[in-house]
Amino acid sequence: MFVDFRNEWTPPERPEPKPAPRQNKRAESVAAWIIGFNLLMLLVGPLAGATLFDAVVALFRR
């Protein structure tokens, strides 16, 4: 098979990737509130879960 190295084909250039769209101020604020709420529930959730578990156990002990 013959390969012609003198007249090489050059591939087309890849297009520039578009930057991801930035969120507006309201969307950033909502995301911050959701993250804050999740962090708060990470700390408070186990305590509330333990309290509910104790209440269910107390109901069945009667």
Rank of each mutant, 00 (worst) to 15 (best):
V3R: 15
V3H: 12
D4I: 15
D4S: 08
D4C: 05
F5E: 01
F5C: 00
F5D: 00
R6L: 13
R6P: 00
N7L: 06
N7P: 08
N7Y: 04
T10A: 02
T10I: 03
P11G: 06
P11E: 07
P12A: 10
P12V: 15
P12G: 15
P15R: 15
P15H: 10
P15W: 11
K18D: 13
P19L: 10
A20S: 12
A20T: 14
R22Y: 02
Q23K: 15
Q23C: 03
K25M: 08
A27G: 11
E28C: 06
E28T: 04
S29V: 08
V30G: 00
V30D: 08
A31K: 12
A31C: 07
A32F: 11
A32Y: 05
W33P: 00
W33E: 13
I34E: 06
I35W: 10
I35E: 13
I35H: 03
G36E: 05
F37I: 06
L39W: 12
L40W: 13
M41I: 10
M41K: 07
L42M: 13
L43R: 04
L43T: 02
G45R: 02
L47P: 12
A50D: 05
A50Q: 04
T51F: 15
D54C: 08
A55Q: 05
V56S: 03
V56L: 06
A58C: 01
A58E: 02
F60W: 07
R61E: 00
